[in-house]
Write a protein that binds this DNA or RNA. Structure first.
Lengths: 236, 236
DNA sequence: CGACGATTTGAATAGGATCAATGGGAGTGG
DNA sequence: CCACTCCCATTGATCCTATTCAAATCGTCG
């Protein structure tokens, strides 16, 4: 673990209030590694040996059953994954792989659990992190069950555009294959969804997209802050 | 709050290790109420005023967007719901209503948050509860995305049969309308799914069901402990 | 240039949803 | 005890969304 990364990690809400000694213990036991794209990090059914933190890059969580496979979510910096399995000391429910070159922090689960027992501030920070993950999954679930593929794409485009400055154009932060699985559809379907959105002013060239009729698009998308807004800010 | 209920509540894992004084404070502020079926308890978007505990009966969590509505999960005794929103002091992401006559404990969220700050054992118990809820949602999500409606029904029947003693017969613990939404399908579709399962030895009469070819049914269902098994028991 | 992977397009199919209508069982009132 | 009613469950027909399989196209990189 390179020492220059320590401050970044230590500022994460999950660790920020920890006793320094306990944090140092955790970091001594941890590994920070860089992985190429498409590397399998964990596999569902394995026991939870490590807690993972995505420091840079992107990890896709997915699951299999029968012959089928489904993307569950994409994890972007800075965020943990499979925290629940680590705390309960049970098997992973999901598999995870990098979608791009990524820097990942691995912390042995036994150390996490010890810190959880010893450090009250850490235990409380874990609650906040878990609650956030939980709500993110619920949002995903709502997005998936209450919207069609076209609507999911429209809303996603609006969110990305807003994040990139609201200038009516945006650059997709992942390839279309990954975007498709994030949206819970096949690449073919994504392609068709883009065509469907053309009359709503969505102009695609590669990963550059312009939204020339944001109003129309918003009319179709019907954004909903209880699905799209990740902020969980104070009640307004 | 009737005193005879106190011991039951106090034995819940969530409260069992709390300081007695803190627990007493919580219970003084709480209400235990009985609701008829189909009563709306919470509505998505409302701020989280109470933590709810289903003591008896059943609560359906659902969500709306556009004109659509989707059941997110059914909560059965004894379990909390919307704990994450209460802890983060943000708006509910889901609405909830009773599906049958139910006894529900309501605890003001501010009291929950105070106990969370003051009582370390409670804070840790909350982590376990949250982690369990989280994994339950992930399981639901997998069930939904990796299986067809017929497969979901087949697996559910096998689980219920096992819970009721594995004697090749079972009694549905809810009406078919509720079962349908639990399985993420319409009542019409559930009806057809039962027909599809007839060749696999599923004999339905009302809410009494016999499984005469459990092997065949299991072959179709392909049960998966990472989806169907709620135990989260020790690894191994 | 040539090859390879990613994306797009097309055609056929499956899984569900929706709308409409019918059947059936439990409870109510006569 | 029987008719009536209401609600749930079932059945049928049709529509829509999305998946699958196949093939063409595009783009990039060696």
């Amino acid at each position: 673990m390179r020492s220059e990364d320590l401050p970044v990690i230590g500022q994460l809400p999950l660790f920020a209030d920890m006793d320094e000694e306990h944090f140092a213990d955790l970091m001594r036991a941890a590994y920070l590694q860089t992985f190429p794209p498409q590397v399998d990090l964990i596999s569902e059914g394995d026991r939870a040996d490590f807690l993972y933190v995505v420091v840079e890059g992107c990890v896709e969580l997915y699951a299999r059953s029968n012959g089928r496979e489904a993307t569950m979510s994409l994890v972007r910096p800075v965020s943990t994954f499979i925290l629940a399995a680590v705390l309960k000391d049970v098997r992973y429910l999901m598999s995870g792989r990098t979608t791009e070159k990524s820097r990942i922090l691995l912390i042995p689960s036994e150390d996490i659990r010890r810190a959880f027992r010893q450090d009250d501030a850490f235990a409380r920070a874990i609650v906040v992190e878990l609650a956030s993950r939980y709500r993110a999954v619920v949002r995903d679930h709502k997005n998936q069950k209450l919207r069609t593929g076209v609507e999911r794409l429209a809303n996603r485009l609006l969110v990305i555009e807003r994040d990139q400055g609201g200038k009516g154009r945006l650059t997709l932060p992942y390839d279309k294959r990954t975007l498709a699985s994030l949206l819970g559809m096949t690449p073919e379907n994504l392609s068709r969804a883009f065509n469907t959105l053309k009359p709503y002013g969505v102009e695609v060239s590669g990963s550059e997209i312009r939204l020339t009729k944001a109003g129309d698009l918003r009319g179709l998308a019907k954004p909903n802050e209880l699905i799209d807004d990740d902020t969980d800010g104070p009640v307004g």
